[in-house]
Amino acid sequence: MHWSSPETRQVILWIAGILLFFSILGRVLRFRVKSEKGLATVSNLIARVRAWWVMAGVIIGSLLGGRTATEIVFGLISLLALREFITATPTRRADHQALFLAFFAALPLQYWLVHTGWYGMFGILIPVYAFVLLPCLSVVRGDTQDFLARTARTQWGLMVCVYFISHIPMLLQLPFAPLPLGNAGLVLFLVVVTQGSDVLQYLWGKLCGKRKIAPNLSPGKTWEGFIGGVLSASLLGASLHWLTPCRPWQAFVIALMLCALGFLGGLIMSAIKRERGIKDWGTLIEGHGGILDRIDSLCFSTPLYFHIMSYCFGN
C-alpha cells in the first residue's frame, strides 16, 4: 500500500470522511440533546469517535509503513491484549515462569515467524509447543490448586491475543495476483468489515433495538442491532470487494461469515468478563474500555478469513 496510488488515497479519504461525519454529528448532538441519559450517550459517542481516529491512524499508518511496521504494530496490540487478558484471569505464583515465557518468548517468536514467513512453524508454535511447554514449567512447582484452569487460561490468552491476531500481519505474506492496494487491502477489508460490523450493530441497536439477544452475556445487544448491523456490514464488504481477489457476492458471503463469527467472538469474550465479574478488559481506550474490548470480534474471525483467502483465492 503506497500513498502514491490513487486507490490508497481514495480509501484513506473515505475512512477520514466517515470519521469526520461522526465527529461533526457528535458536536451537533451535544447541542441538540437535553436529557441526562442522552447526554451520556453523546459524550460516549464523542469519546468513541475520538478513539476511532487514533485507531484508524495507527492501522493505516502501519500499513503505509510496510510489512515490518505492520508486524510490529500488531505485535504490540497482541502484547497489550495479552496483558489485559492475564490481568483479569487468576493465575498463581507457580505460573510466573510460564507467564514470563508466554510474554517474552512465545509472543515475540510468533511475530518473528510472521516476519520470516515460516508458515509451518507459525501454525503450530502456540497450539502445540506452547501448549506442551508452559504447563511443564508450572507443574514442577507442585501447586495443584486450579491447575487445569490456570493452564487453560494461559493457553487461551495466547491463542486469542497472540495466535489469532498474528494472522492479520501474516496476510501480507500470502501469494496473490496483484491487488489494487497489495495485500494491505486484505487487512483493510478484514478490519473495516469486522469493526464496521461492531459500529453498525451499535448504531442499529441504538436506533431500533428492542428484543435482547443475550441478556446474561451482553445486555446491550439486541436482535435488531445484530441483524441490521451484520447485513449492512456485509453490504459494506460487498462494496469493498475490489480490495480483495473476490467477486462482490463472494465478498458479501465472506463478510457475512466474518460478522457472524465476530458477533459470537464478542459474546465469548463477554462471557469470560461476566465470569470474572468485570465490565471492561481495561481502561486504555476512552469510551471503549480496554484494547481487548475493541478487538474481541476480530480475534475470532481472523483465522477463518486467513484460511478462506489462502485456500480459495491464493496462488
Binding site: R83, T87, R93, H96, Q97, F100, F103, G282
Partner: peptide, 18 residues
C-alpha cells in the same frame, strides 16, 4: 492490587500485568 503477580516474592523477572 496485582503487584504480587507482576513480581512475586522469590522471582527477579517481572511480567507486564496491569
Amino acid at each position: 492490587q496485582n503487584l504480587n503477580r507482576v513480581l512475586p516474592k522469590g522471582h527477579v523477572l517481572p511480567i507486564p500485568l496491569l
